[in-house]
Design a protein around this nucleic acid. Sequence first.
DNA 1: TCTGGGGTCCTAGGACCC
DNA 2: TCTGGGGTCCTAGGACCC
Length: 430
Amino acid sequence: MFALCDCNNFYASCERLFRPDLERRPVAVLSNNDGCVIARSSEVKALGVPMGAPYFREEGRFRHFGVEVFSSNYPLYEDLSRRVTDSLRSLVPDVEVYSIDEAFLYMDTLPEAAADPSEFCRRVRERVLHWTGIPVSIGLGETKTLAKAANRIAKKDPSREGIFTMPHGEEADRYLEGIDIGDVWGVGFRNAPKLRRLGVRTARALKHADGEWIRRRFTICEARTSRELNGLVCFPFTEAPGPRKTIRVSRSFGDPVTELLSLREAISYFAFSAAETLRGEGSAAGKIHLFLMTSPFGSAPRYANAATARFDVPTSCTTDIVGQALKCLERIFVEGYPYKKAGVALTDLADGAHLQGHLFREIKKPWEGSLMKAVDHLNMEFGRGTVYTASMGIRDRRSWVMRRGHVSPRYTTCWEDLPSVLPPEGAQLP
DNA sequence: TCTGGGGTCCTAGGACCC
DNA sequence: TCTGGGGTCCTAGGACCC
């Protein structure tokens, strides 16, 4: 049995945690750059605001209904996500963190969980709420896909009180009948219309479709989803997913950037940040990929391009990575366009401890390791941005920063932002 | 005026080998 | 007019997820 534990309206719940006055009030959280709506409290969902809606189109409606709007505050969400995971691990040995707000729990290793999974999950849910203040819903099923489907029902049907177990075999059909094909985990907005045209309109229909036929008309992915709906595990529990294969840092700019100098600063910043993540994973990058683009919307002239460079020996050294990124930029930058977004991706990642050498060249920089350790240590100890490459520009003069008009304090990760609890006037402290 | 960011996996087609 | 058979590896593009 798999359980899928999913935090309710996660980012909105995080924002409410330190603002009890927002309980039962509409709360929306925006993507980076205050671009789109990416989290909605139930009140905002009830207004009919879709996931991913551009904020500028909803702004009027939000003002009218008094929706409390937040820019995304990832330090806060990541910290609370870790607390939720820790709470889960305190009760369940096998936890697979699937995303910032979801985790699969494997029920069969723990005898008390296997005996009555649904009752056990009730305890899990209570503990997470009690320890972190974040409400979660839990769906149970024989496969991850069925647990996902069960989770939907747990969320949608208030009478389930946040827990639903998908029954086995044919008994599941009456529930799967109520799930639109487009809402099945693994069926996206491209294949859903195609499946519908072929008469497969619900989760139940996909479950009973002929496997060979699905495989022919689609790919192995859709065939697996169909098998999973039949209770056959195709996506096994994987507690420790391997190291990442790509690391990507990209941002849209608050205002379009036209100057090469500003772009160099931004690219340096992205490359610096990617290199930091890379070392955190203990990996080294074999290639670097840089891309930039103008806005895909509106009538302004458009330009988009990308460049890739390969390192002779995989590296995790910031100066190597920033240097190559800037060389890539020289290759594709064209004067005169209003650039709206750019980014850096590190690929061909290898284990940093066991690097393949270069056949014809001896490349040894013994100081490199300790220099990067010092940089990471300083930035860890004294805060991000304590040391950085000069090419990133001076912090307060960067023109390419993103818009974040409604950001909440970093309540749990920054000393200056810690909430203070003041005693009432004249009260005696014990 | 204003439209996010970060991932994984699969497939088809091309290039190459003997 | 006629031109083999059996492989591997790489890449770009497309699909999906949150």
